[in-house]
Amino acid sequence: MKNINRVIIIGWDGAGTFVQGAHTPHLDRFIQTGAFTLEAQTVVPSISAQCWGALLHGVVPEKHGLTNDLAATASFPEDSEFPSIFRLAREAYPHKKLASFSAWQPINDGIIERSLEVHKVNIAVDGELALAAASYIRDNPDLLLMYIDLDWPDAMGHRHGFNTPEQIHGIEMTDAHTGIILDAIEAAGIWDDSLIIIVTDHGGGGIQPQDHGSDHPLDTTIFWGCIGPGIQTEAALSGLTITDTAAVVAHALGLQAPAAWDAKLPIGLFANEKHTAPSAAD
């Protein structure tokens, strides 16, 4: 079995579990050979900064303290006891390539620490972002950690309502954009030694048809999936939360998860629960 030499996270903002009603051939192909659940839970309030903050920093919003406004105007404290997965990766591998491509700029401005020499790209148009991310992957197959945020499902949900035909179309477009990224991973020859995670941050329409943020199941129930060396396709993923993503990434890259993290490694997800550091580590 090959080692995991990199992690690539593809985030679909606002897709909830509404992928069930969409034509998503790229996600479907991904699901067939990976571990997947439609019963994962996000954090409350189910708002983007709180949710992506939990994924990236491994703790619930009450601890990381991020809001949309704060993420847009201030960088996450460098000395926080709740470091992001990017900070852990940079501290362990000072010279490895880290990248974040985001359609929602606060992720790069305020959620990921600014001093880490992460290659950050902000492009508001998902299709252009996917092409840029795909180009980066093809040119940098030796990358260690990459995060990609696609925003169209959330934008369509706010504009037309969540789980509406218009939002479903937005999800289908996001699947097509994800296909561009997955094709680039294969073309770069790094599919077999990468851990790829596809996840959404929240749903919507639980209380307000065109909004989210509540503890209603439509707002808080999300899909989560991953594929890679040693991933058990039949893993139950019972009780998985978006916060646990940080623990999955840390384990895959051989990073020491902080004791302060709430993130927990899902039992049975990896065939070998003992991690192996990426090859050619600096």
Rank of each mutant, 00 (worst) to 15 (best):
I4S: 01
A35T: 05
S214F: 13
M173L: 14
E62F: 00
G14R: 02
N5G: 00
W104Q: 10
Q105C: 03
C51T: 15
R87H: 08
F162D: 07
I10H: 02
A280G: 03
S100F: 12
V199W: 07
F223N: 00
A280V: 05
Q208N: 14
D79I: 10
S75L: 01
N272T: 08
G58A: 00
V43R: 07
Y136W: 15
Q208A: 12
A74Q: 15
G239S: 04
Q208F: 12
M156K: 14
N108E: 02
L116V: 04
P25V: 02
I112M: 11
P278C: 03
I227H: 07
G205A: 08
G58H: 00
E186G: 09
A263T: 04
H169W: 14
Q41Y: 02
H119Y: 14
E81Y: 00
G268M: 05
A235D: 07
K274D: 14
A133I: 00
R90V: 00
F86T: 07
D262P: 06
G228F: 08
F82A: 15
F223Q: 02
I181P: 00
E128F: 04
T245H: 08
A246C: 13
L70G: 05
L269S: 15
P94H: 11
P61D: 13
H95C: 11
G203F: 11
G170H: 11
E91M: 09
H119Q: 09
W12G: 01
V121Q: 06
Q32R: 15
D215A: 09
A236C: 14
G170C: 06
E62I: 03
K264Y: 06
F86D: 02
D126R: 03
F82K: 10
W191I: 03
I148V: 14
G204N: 04
G268E: 05
D201R: 12
I85A: 11
A188M: 06
A176M: 09
R29A: 15
K2W: 07
I181E: 05
P141A: 08
A103H: 06
A252G: 03
G14Y: 01
T37A: 05
T164R: 13
N163P: 02
V44D: 08
E78I: 03
I196C: 10
D142F: 06
P77F: 08
T174L: 10
F223M: 04
A89H: 00
D192F: 09
N122W: 14
S48W: 06
E117C: 06
K264P: 04
D149G: 08
A236L: 14
N272Y: 05
D28C: 03
I242Q: 13
I47D: 07
H216K: 04
A71R: 10
H177T: 03
A260K: 13
V60Q: 00
A133T: 04
E113I: 02
A89D: 01
A250G: 06
V59A: 09
A103G: 10
F36N: 10
A184H: 01
A188P: 02
T241L: 14
A92F: 01
L66K: 06
A252Q: 08
P209A: 13
W52Y: 10
H202C: 13
Y147M: 13
G225F: 07
S238Y: 15
V248M: 15
P165C: 06
L88H: 01
G110A: 08
L144A: 07
P61M: 12
G239I: 06
H160D: 15
G14A: 00
L144D: 12
K264W: 03
L143A: 02
M173T: 12
V118G: 11
